[in-house]
Simulated assay, not measured.
Amino acid sequence: MIKARGYAANHSFTRLKPLEFQREEPKPNEVQIDVLYCGVCHSDIHQVENDWSNTVYPCMPGHEIVGRVVATGSSVTRHKQGDLVGVGCMIDSCRQCEPCRAGDEHHCEGHNSWLATYNGPMKPAAMTEDGVNTYGRDNTYGGYSNVVVVPEDFVLRIPESLPIEAAAPILCAGVTTFSPLRHWGVKAGDKVGIVGLGGLGHVAVKLAKAMGADVTVFTTDKDKIEPGKALGASEVVMEGDKEAFKRLELSFDFILSTIPEKHKVDPFITLLKRNATYCAVGALDQIPGYNNMEMVMHRRSLAGSLIGSIRETQEVLDFCAEHGVAPDVQVIPIQDVNEAYKKVKNEDVRFRYVIDMASLKQEMADA
């Protein structure tokens, strides 16, 4: 067994605190990774606070992991000791269902769906008809820790040209926005709207710009007007600006919503061209009703997208390296993670916190 330490919450109302635990040694197909950096995602907060009513405690978040391989199982061929690698939202899937065979592990239809980097299977045993957990793990511990052990085919290669600390958010925020932009065929010259300018939104702006799109940002925060323009948006529109929304009717090829809570979509539907799509990636709550007349009159679509596949995650890492795209990050010690959570909830971060795990290793040395 591997002695490990991380930060975890024991209940929805408790702070993240140090937790010592053990990880299993790498199986033949697994690699052991020394965690260097881990991003702080808004979904980490939702999970810790049990907003989706499925949290398994103790809950140790972290699914934007960058580190170095320090040990490999006997059958590993994709990675070797010393490699700089990443781990995103998933560490396994059933590998047998149609989505998995097609390379869409994030849509796994197996008995327990995919195995999340933390909090166990996406479909807990309690949600299955027979109460069986095919992974044999009721809980998994994430990247707010010094070490992780992951099957080699769920481990990504980090391009050398990417800033190592900025690579972490690409593993979730990057692929979560890249996947729908690619799936709905965003191309040079398209007019793309990005709703919300936070951890996901600011990456979406950069990716859409790198694809050659003309990007407009929609926000409720006037303090994000200048940052939005600095990121490359041709226009930043305040939600509620009726004149701007009227002017922009029937002008967008694609709109991507990155808002992490439920929100109205009606104001944005009229902005879509014929056959265009509004896609929500940030919110996992119910979306309020919409006027279907506006949908059918121009054959518009309302859609959703869930993170992205392992293949797409590698694609976005390589795309970012090729086009010089990197998330804007603020590096923090792990001891400040609870304060960081408060600031994320208050939208007081530009634009993504990343934990430097050297702070955890120093804490372990001092213990």
Rank of each mutant, 00 (worst) to 15 (best):
6 G>I: 13
11 H>S: 13
16 L>Q: 04
19 L>T: 01
20 E>F: 11
23 R>E: 06
28 P>W: 01
30 E>F: 06
30 E>M: 09
32 Q>V: 07
32 Q>F: 07
34 D>W: 08
35 V>R: 13
47 Q>G: 13
54 N>H: 08
56 V>D: 12
59 C>R: 01
59 C>D: 02
60 M>F: 08
61 P>Q: 10
63 H>R: 03
64 E>R: 02
64 E>T: 02
67 G>D: 08
76 V>M: 00
79 H>R: 14
87 V>I: 09
94 C>K: 06
98 E>S: 15
99 P>W: 02
100 C>H: 04
101 R>H: 11
101 R>T: 03
104 D>M: 11
106 H>I: 07
116 A>L: 13
116 A>Y: 02
125 A>L: 07
128 T>F: 00
129 E>H: 10
132 V>T: 11
132 V>P: 10
134 T>L: 14
135 Y>M: 03
137 R>S: 08
141 Y>D: 12
142 G>E: 08
145 S>M: 14
145 S>L: 15
152 E>T: 01
156 L>F: 13
164 I>R: 03
165 E>D: 11
169 P>I: 05
175 V>R: 08
175 V>Q: 03
175 V>S: 15
181 L>A: 15
187 K>G: 15
187 K>D: 09
193 G>E: 02
193 G>I: 04
194 I>D: 01
199 G>P: 10
202 H>F: 09
202 H>Y: 05
215 V>P: 05
216 T>V: 14
220 T>I: 10
226 E>K: 04
229 K>I: 12
229 K>C: 06
232 G>E: 02
233 A>H: 01
233 A>C: 10
234 S>Y: 06
241 D>R: 02
242 K>M: 05
245 F>H: 07
245 F>E: 07
247 R>V: 10
249 E>R: 01
253 D>E: 00
259 I>R: 05
264 K>A: 13
265 V>D: 12
270 T>Q: 15
288 P>E: 06
289 G>Q: 14
291 N>T: 11
292 N>A: 15
295 M>T: 06
296 V>Y: 04
307 I>D: 14
309 S>A: 01
313 T>Q: 05
315 E>A: 08
321 A>P: 00
324 G>V: 13
325 V>S: 00
330 Q>F: 09
332 I>D: 04
337 V>E: 00
347 E>L: 08
356 D>V: 05
363 E>D: 13
